[in-house]
Structures are given as structure tokens and as C-alpha cells.
Design a protein around this nucleic acid. Structure first.
Lengths: 213, 213, 213, 213
DNA sequence: CTTTAAACGAGACGGTACGTCGGGTCTTACA
DNA sequence: TGTAAGACCCGACGTACCGTCTCGTTTAAAG
């Protein structure tokens, strides 16, 4: 009789525990970081989350899916940046990404991406995070164009690829010597990189020297 | 004048089967390619190699180590290239690497490198293959300098990082849609990339434009 | 007045398969009889019982314990006998025991008893079967006394010991020439033995002759 | 030219180490007593004996045979006894045997006899020790007959069977509560037993009461 | 002295079972 | 209907031992 609200028709039976999903994801990521991929166990996750195995299997179909989800759940916000200049934005973007990859969870995202590609998993998984980064870069470049900076649309995609690729290489090289890499080092490396690539983004950079060949 | 008695003192007991190591590694890589990482089983490898489990465990301490070794054993020769010009060499190098990464074994090398970095494994594992690539690039650049091409030593390392990084990104993007990527596509992508980055390697490219900011 | 609520609080979780225990024990004894003690294998038992190995290990801690239990489970009923006379009862008792020991399962009981004594196992194992025999003998003698037969309580225990001991010796001597020992032979041997020892059970047999010495 | 002596034609090649056999047997029995039948290992024996596995396999065909031999090698001398009287001899014999069975090595002999019977091994194994005992008893009785003691040849075998059987039962009952059973207890038990059975050996014991049956 | 032949230690080999552990499914009693 | 508990079948793990094999070395006797 007109309870009015569209209150989603509550299904019968015991309602799902509200916090279960979060508790499981948290437990999962912790287990992964502590014990690694091969030590990552559904039993272990359920135990740590204080939850029955069936509660896990009710939400995720298998071990791998849970692993992926738990990592992705943590690699959230690639906050948008806006420093007012293209160079500043690109540096900020790079620093964000390098910082992300040097963090255990961020690096885990890379691991999973690679694994997902290898096992031919769903597009979502393989490209989820990468897309977020790409979109952020697109935004920055679009804004630059609006501001009148002479961005060359022809090289744009390739330069972004180089930028992110180089940062990934750096992350692989540094590994996870966790604290060793100070904030200053990170910023310096990114500035260097952006300053190297920036000319390629600007209109007046003439196409390759080409003649001889 | 005496053979110098340097003859390595043979250890006692029955000598190890000479071919066992190779047979196991071959069986291992085959199992890996057929069944994937999670279906990779010591029992299976031993069975396929026609060898007892103990013979495997005598040489490798555990499943993971064998997996890594068997993959690395296959990612051997990054053959040196010499086309006569810097541009040609870089293209050849890039094509080699992209082709390598699009091959199951090559991609597996990437996977393992990432895993190894994550678990803080031995330097050898993490950098073995990467170093070979880096050395090949060094050679190419050194030769270009000898020929008198105006290579800028200041940007060299970073440009190589960009090149390899971008190729890795491409490999991740294409995934293993194995046959989808024809030789032509590969070459085209590499040429494009090299032509984008080459100017940054040449002396007369002035350091970052920088003016304001 | 209340059912007393003594109802054993059912433990949570899926209840154990009711028939698993029996199936495993049956499979175990069969494997034992077919393949002998050294061919007795947990894997084999599980396979034959159509059960997972973990289901076995959930109930028995290891191979040996399962072997003992499965044999003991079969050496059940030492049926009571009542022929109306002491001599008849003793003969029946002896025949029962000799027949039991000449049967594979019965002999296995002897083996296990000896092994259990050697390894200092639980009392139950070492004396379980022996006690049943002893009790049966006690019953027979008690009944004889009730009937008025002049049983000498002083020699009773020792005579029973002699009787069972001699039968064990016979079993060891005959070994398991399974069919070789016909029912007639068994009975004859037992009659002979009982007739030898019976006088020692009766009151009027005076204690050892002793005189000189 | 008749060197006369039957000097066993020495075979060529390096002669067998003289002490190896003994060292192996000693190591074997020690391992058996320490670790039990299932922990008895050829590798372990060889290691403890300071000998290569091949040296063991050169002398014994397999684990079980070595186990049997090593135990039998220790259950040597059932020294003959001669106290001057039948009763004294029988008591001495019984005490010897009970003492033997309460000793770890002696009990092991019993274990092996049982096992050997069960697995239908060679006669020698199954009856080796038993025969020695039987022969000793035969000697004692023969001597008594010579001395003119009225031994009944008809009951002789069965009485000996009872005697040894009863002693075996006692050994099984006492188990290996090693020190618990003092020398005095052993002797007392044997005297009691002999005094119970002795009358059955003497002529004047009339045959079973029989009539009713 | 040299040859021949066996014993010896060491330890690798192909198998096979051990007892443990995890995956993913199922079944119960409660909530 | 969800949940915790936990049993279920399966199969891999890494270890240990079996009995066999292959080495290089040692030891005597025969030539």
C-alpha cells in the first residue's frame, strides 16, 4: 500500500552479509602480498576473513577470479591531474604511475595484467587499468590542445606509449627495493623522461630525417 | 711437459645421465605451453621426459625453479644485428624483440621476469634476458658512433628505455592473438616507432625546448 | 518429564559419509589378504573403496593404524559355546580358536598382536582379542562349576594358558597350508589336547607329585 | 700331486671384506630394535654399518631376507641344560626360553617367526628357532629316560607343546615391560608351570577319564 | 710387473607410496 | 536464501626408500 519508494524488492531468505565482500577482498590482497601468487589460497583467504569458504564461492567462481578482483579493487583512483601546463601534467601523470608501480599493490596489477594477457582472459581484466591510464593521458592532451599548446595529434598515441613503456621498464628495473626509491628520485626520473619526449609532441618537430635509407 | 693435471676430479658414484637435463627442460617447456602455468606439474614433466621424479628433484629444488629455468633456457640468442645503418639496426632490434614477445616462450619470459621481480628473486633471473637486450642495443649504438653517425650519448639510455618500453606495451596490447599479428604489421609498427625516436638520438636535436617553465 | 535433552549436539558441517568407514575397512582387509602386509597401500585401499585418500586420513592417522583396525574389525565374534559338558565345551572352544588361527584373518590377528606388543601399542590392541578368548574360557568353567563338575580353581588359569598356548603353537607349526588342515584333523588335535589337560582341572588330581626333591 | 686338502678353490678378484657381514648384521639388528620393522631400511643399515648399499645387496637379495637373517643371527645358543633331574631341567629350559622371549632380540625372533609363517617363507626360517628349542627338550627327556625316570613317551610331544605354548602366552602378556619382570618372577612362573605339567609326563598318570563322551 | 676379475664406496636412476594440502563441490544446521 | 562448518573426491606436492645401475678405486691371484 504505497510504501512509495522503489525499494528493491528484498529477496527472501537470509540477506547477504553486507561487509563480507570487503572483508574477503581485504583478506585476499593481504594474503597475496604476504604469500605470493602460489601461496594464495581460498582456504587461507576465508580463514583470514573469518568467513566460510562457501561465502567466497558464492561471490567468485574460482581462485583466479578472486585474485584478479582483489588486486583490481585496490588499484583504484588514477586521479586526474591539472597543473595548468602540458609539461606539468605529463610529469604529474608519470610520477603517479611510477609511484603506483613501485607500490606492492600497483606492481601486483602489472603482474596480473601480464598473467591475464598470457591466459587470454577477458578484455576487462587485461585492459582495465591500462585504459584508465590511457584515458587520463587523453584528457591531459585534450586540455593542452584547448589551451592552444601545439600538440601534434599524429605522434600523440605513440609518445604516450613510449612514456608509459619507459616507466614500466623503470619499475621492473628498480624492482621493489621498496623504500630505496625516494620521492625525489621518482620525480627526477619522470622530469627527465618527459623533457626527452615532449618535443615529439609539439607540432614543429619535423618528421624523421629520413632521406638516406 | 705434463698436461698440467688440471683434469677436474670426477666425483664418485654413478655419473648423472648426460641427456637428462635437456630432456627435462624440453618436456617442461612443452608442458608449460600446452597446459599453462597452473597445469605445469613435476609429475607431468617427469612422465613426459621419461624420467623418475627423483631425477628432476636432483636438479631443481621445486616446481617454480624448474619452470623459470625451462623458460629461460629457451629464450636464448638475441642475435646481434648489423644492417649497416643505425636506423636499420634499431628497426631490426625492435622487430626481434617484438617478435620474441609475441611468441609464447618470449611472452613467458616476460611473465617470469615480472614474477621474479615481485618475489625478489635472484638478480640473474630478473635481469638475465633484459640485460641481453640492453647489451645488443649498446653494441648497435657503439657501432653507429664508430661509423661517425652523430649519436648523442646523453639521451642514449633513455631512448632505448622508451623503445623497449613501447614494444613491451605493444606486446601487452596485442596479447597473444598469435597469428593475428603478421610479420608486416610487426615491421610497420617498429619502423614507426624507431622513426619517432631516432631524432632524439642524434646530436643536433637540442635538449628539451624548455623556454618558459 | 522432558526427554532430557541429552541429544548429542550434532557437530556443524557436512556429516561424515555413514558407510565410508565400513567400505574402507572392507577394502582394507581385502587388500591385505590379496597383497599381504607390504603390499597394503593407503592409495590402494582408497581406490578400492571408491573413496578419496583424505577420507581415509580423516579417520585413521596412518597406514599401520588402519591395518590393525581393519584386521581387528574382522576378528569379531568368539561365539560362546555350550555343549553340556566341560570336556565338550573345552573341545569346542579349542576347535574355534584353532580354526580361527588357521584362517588368514585370524592369523593376521596373531601377527598384529605380536607386532603391537613389540611396539608397545595401546592395551586395547594387544589384548583385545586375547581377552575375548579368555572370557569365553572363564564362562565355560564357571558353568561347569555350577553344574557341579569338580573344577579346581587353583589350576584353572594356568591350564587355560597351556591350552591356548598349545593351540597357538599348532597354528604356527601348521602355518597356513590352508586347505591341508581338514576339519577332522583340527578336531582330532583339539580332542587329544583337551584330554591331556582335563585331569589337571579336576579337583582330585593332587598337586604335583613332588615327594623327593 | 695331491695337495690333499680340499682347500676351496679361491675365486679370483678382490676377496670380500671379512668383517662386512658381521658389521651389517649388527647394524641391521640395531636399526630394527631402534626403529621397528617399518623403519628398517637398507639405506639406513648400510649407512650405520659404514658400508655401501651394493655390499649389502651382494650378500642379501632384499630387505626382508636381511631382516630375518639379522635377527636369527642373534638368537643363537639355546644352551643345553643339565641339572641332574627332569624337573630341574624343565625348569631351566623354561626359564631360558621365557628370558629369551622377554629380551628384545628374542621377542623379535617370535615376531619374525610369525611373519615368516604368514608369508609362507622357507621352512628354515619358520622353524629354525623352534626346532632348536624342541631339540633341547628332546635331549632333556631322553636323559631322564636313561636315568630311569618314568617318562611317558605318549604324552611327551604334547606336554612340551603346552609348556612352550604357555611360556609364549606369558611373553605376549607381559609384553616388553622390560625390567618389570625380575629374575625371581620369571623363575617362579616357570616352576609353577612345570609342576603343573610334570605329572602328565610320568607313566602312572592314567589316561583321560573318558568313559562318558 | 702386468693383467684380470671381483668387491667396494658412492650415488644416480625409474618407480612407487607416503602423509599433507588445496581446489572446487556438496551437505548439513542455523539464521 | 545465505552462511559457517566441514566432509567429500581428486590429484599434485616434496620426501624417502626400493632394488638396479654405473662409475672409479682397491685388492689379490694368475700370467
Amino acid at each position: 500500500m504505497g510504501d512509495g519508494v522503489t525499494a528493491a524488492r528484498r529477496s527472501p531468505g537470509r540477506p547477504r552479509r553486507a561487509d563480507a565482500e570487503r572483508r574477503i577482498l581485504d583478506a585476499a590482497i593481504d594474503e597475496y602480498l604476504e604469500r605470493g601468487a602460489s601461496g594464495f589460497t581460498i582456504d587461507g583467504v576465508a580463514r583470514r576473513a573469518g568467513v566460510g569458504k562457501s561465502t567466497v564461492y558464492l561471490r567468485w567462481p574460482d581462485r583466479d577470479t578472486l585474485l584478479v578482483d582483489s588486486v583490481l579493487a585496490r588499484s583504484r583512483a588514477i586521479e586526474d591531474v591539472d597543473t595548468g601546463s602540458l609539461r606539468g601534467d605529463l610529469v604529474a601523470l608519470s610520477v603517479n604511475m611510477l609511484r603506483f608501480l613501485l607500490d606492492p599493490v600497483g606492481f601486483a596489477t602489472l603482474r596480473l595484467t601480464v598473467e591475464a594477457v598470457a591466459s587470454g582472459s577477458t578484455r576487462e581484466v587485461t585492459t582495465g587499468v591500462a585504459d584508465r591510464h590511457r584515458r587520463a593521458a587523453g584528457l591531459v592532451l585534450a586540455r593542452a590542445a584547448e589551451r592552444g599548446e601545439p600538440v601534434n595529434p599524429g605522434t600523440q598515441a605513440r609518445v604516450v606509449e613510449c612514456l608509459y613503456g619507459a616507466i614500466t621498464m623503470k619499475a621492473l628495473a628498480h624492482g621493489l627495493e621498496t623504500d630505496a626509491t625516494s620521492e625525489a628520485t621518482i620525480v627526477a626520473a619522470c622530469v627527465e623522461l618527459v623533457d626527452l619526449l615532449l618535443p615529439l609532441l609539439l607540432e614543429h618537430v619535423r618528421p624523421p630525417p629520413d632521406p638516406a635509407r
